[in-house]
Design a protein around this nucleic acid. Structure first.
Lengths: 229, 229
DNA sequence: TTCATACTTCGATCATAAACGAAGTATCGA
DNA sequence: TCGATACTTCGTTTATGATCGAAGTATGAA
């Protein structure tokens, strides 16, 4: 089998600016309506509809109908990874200067990646859990230690629930901005949910940047000795 | 900054079947002439020339002139990773049955990934080095232990040389076929070179599949207790 | 029941990019 | 010096896909 045509098929789906805008928006892990996605892609609803059909056919997104609304989200973590891998190339490949704004810095600091935390915060959190020996590295995933299990259960995570299902428990997801991995998988998602429920992090009403609250800063320092500039 | 257009730019370069065929061929780590790449892409030399110019401008490939020949190779490991990430999607996204042939199995068993070993052999080798405590996992890379340094130097690797330069010493490269990482980086490349120089593995005159020789099978069993079916 | 909203489908237009024949340039061997 | 080879550039053709106005379908609120 020659890989080329298959790679091209997957890449071509991401290779249109409108579709890439939509996929990128969906990296926030939320479900989005077709109208919202048309808006972020800057195209008409008819054009958006055609693009979404293609992405669905290529299995990069999943759709859920609720009345007259169609909700779209990324199909799986592999799509997020491929987007991050292409973003690494995009950043590296840039010839012309791409002036960074405050939003860029915010994105580098903390953002969602599908359903878990990315950026300096995501990576810092991951490193802290390793340093505390709550996690160990094991292949393309993390392994939770016995102490880690106790600690994270004590922190409020339903570890048993996170272990259930087919999804990788604690995958490693390469971060385009930090160039080192953050926790993904079911554990990464559960951790993010708990941080949100404690109001240690907040998501804005739209977009992917995540804010670390004062409570979160204090909480992470107390829990993991984690300080971030 | 909105990521979409930049992701699209990188993805679009890979999204043409001819270009994807060329990039995929270059995953073998070799330098290829423009004529060879035209052939594997199934296009005329004029068309190939235009495609190669685009890939070079997008910084996915590097070119080196020798007389009238132009030699092309992948620019860096990040391009290889993005191709592997897209291949993961391509395999996962397939609706129609893609009959696998003996070449597929050979590719799954052992193949080149840029300049290091991928497939069951690459992953098995990596796992064995971890089990022997010659390597430890550390973020998006491997850390070599003191014993590992002795062992791999004893095996013939110039560890000091591998540590020099800007390249990551022992990166982790996600394997599309095994879904778990193999060693990349300077160490991965050095290891592959040493295996070749011992004739434990051989590369065919073209293509990406790698053959594990009888000597290699025996050698890996003796050295690392590694047996592969 | 009617009207508004969300979204899809149809048909047409237009822009873009891949394709290659012909011609050109650079290199190399006889 | 000449002819062959490797590769690039130019110009043209063709196919493809994105785009949206118009119309259609499904859902839901008044």
């Amino acid at each position: 089998m020659n890989d080329g045509p298959y790679i091209a098929e997957a890449a071509a789906l991401m290779g249109d600016p409108a579709r890439a805008n939509m996929l990128s928006a969906m990296l926030d892990g939320r479900a989005h309506t077709a109208s919202e996605l048309a808006y972020v892609a800057g195209v008409s609803p008819q054009t958006a509809s055609a693009h979404l059909a293609k992405l669905a056919q290529g299995r990069m997104i999943a759709v859920e109908r609720q009345g007259r609304h169609r909700y779209y989200r990324l199909a799986n973590e592999e799509v997020a990874r491929a987007l991050e891998a292409l973003m690494v190339l995009a950043v590296k490949g840039a010839r012309r200067h791409r002036p960074t704004g405050p939003r860029d810095e915010a994105m580098r600091f903390a953002r969602t990646c599908y359903d878990h935390l990315a950026g300096r915060l995501g990576v810092g959190l991951t490193q802290a859990l390793i340093e505390k020996r709550y996690l160990e590295q094991n292949g393309d995933a993390f392994h939770m230690t016995r102490e880690g299990e106790a600690q994270l259960a004590g922190f409020g995570l339903d570890i048993a629930a996170a272990r259930k299902g087919r999804r990788i428990f604690a995958s490693r997801c390469l971060d385009w901005s930090e160039r080192t991995p953050h926790i993904g998988g079911a554990l990464g998602a559960a951790l993010f949910r708990e941080l949100e429920s404690r109001c240690w992090v907040t998501k804005p009403s739209d977009g992917r940047t995540v804010t670390l609250t004062k409570a979160g800063r204090a909480g992470l320092r107390d829990w993991l000795d984690l300080s971030l500039g």
